[in-house]
């Protein structure tokens, strides 16, 4: 709560002066606590570094080769951004299917969710990257070369498709909860105005649901940045692929994997920060 009565000042109002002093003190205490936690973090990192240095850890190698791994950050971000976007669209339709009374929509949606959630992401990646082209070969023999081409994806496309399908299934529940969080009265008010289901969804329900959904989608995005490491198995030149490639060549596993880990860590910290800013911006209509 902010103080709205402008003429009040600490000089004229002793209560306000006391209150302000208390708030300042509480803030100071919190700051000191945060600083202490920071010191512990620093100590843990120092301890880890010291231990590693005792075991022939090779910092100069990191300095020389970090840039090679760093260049994969862009690919990791790109794969994740495209995938979270497609996954959100899939999740929206998945959620609409789940909430629909149409048995076909319900069937497709629940089948999709069950299959994807019941199988490992790594298997899905292999199926899409290696399995689909095999089917494509057969289709080619049957005389459908265009279909065969459609099923043969490059590593990037296959990675994005796998991540999108996988996260879309998990995020269906998030979108379903978001749609259901919008009060029944909002549906009724929109219906009473004569809106079609689509108008209702687009103009009234989704804008309100998105506010509920955004934090969870943000968490999924952060998780996906790390799961995107799995697409390295197909040779997409992202962080993990680049790091393990050098690590194998020069037998510098600790060095390169720590670089990769640090980059993911930084990515998630930046993403969390962006997420909280976005949430604040979207709260605008709901601030008194």
């Amino acid at each position: 709560m902010e103080v709205t009565n402008a003429p009040l000042s600490p000089e004229s109002d002793p209560d306000l002066a006391v209150g302000l002093a208390l708030v300042r003190k509480a803030r100071r205490v919190r700051l000191i606590e945060t600083l202490k936690v920071g010191v512990v973090w620093f100590a843990l990192l120092a301890l880890l570094t010291f231990g590693l240095l005792q075991l022939r850890f090779d910092p100069p190698y990191i300095v020389q080769n970090a840039y090679f791994v760093l260049r994969g950050v862009w690919t990791t971000i790109w794969v994740s951004v495209v995938s979270i976007f497609i996954a959100s669209v899939l999740a929206l339709f998945g959620a609409l299917g789940r909430l629909s009374r149409n048995p076909i929509a319900q069937g497709i949606s629940s089948f999709y969710i069950s299959v994807i959630r019941g199988t490992p992401l790594l298997i899905q990646i292999y199926l899409i990257y290696n399995g689909l082209p095999q089917l494509g070969q057969q289709l080619k023999l049957l005389g459908y070369p265009q279909l065969a081409q459609l099923l043969t994806l490059d590593a990037f496309q296959a990675g994005v498709l796998a991540l999108s399908l996988n996260y879309g299934a998990y995020m269906t529940e998030i979108f379903r909860a978001g749609l259901q969080a919008v009060g029944h009265g909002q549906y009724e008010a929109a219906a009473a105005l004569g809106m079609t289901r689509w108008q209702m969804l687009r103009r009234i329900i989704l804008p309100q649901a998105i506010r509920v959904i955004i934090p969870d989608v943000g968490n999924q995005f952060i998780a996906m940045q790390k799961d995107s490491a799995l697409v390295s198995v197909m040779g997409v030149w992202e962080i993990t692929f680049r790091a393990t490639r050098l690590a194998r060549k020069d037998a510098k596993f600790i060095e390169m994997l720590l670089v990769a880990a640090a980059l993911y860590w930084i990515l998630t910290i930046v993403s969390s920060w962006l997420q909280s800013r976005l949430e604040k911006r979207m709260a605008h209509a709901y601030e008194r």
């Binding site: 009060g183 009724e188 008010a189 219906a191 009473a192 004569g194 009234i204 309100q208």
Partner: peptide
């Protein structure tokens, strides 16, 4: 529905 206008107990304005 286009022939009718409805006012609800809980207002149901669009927040």
């Amino acid at each position: 529905r286009l022939k009718t206008g409805m006012v609800f107990q809980d207002f149901n304005v669009f927040p």
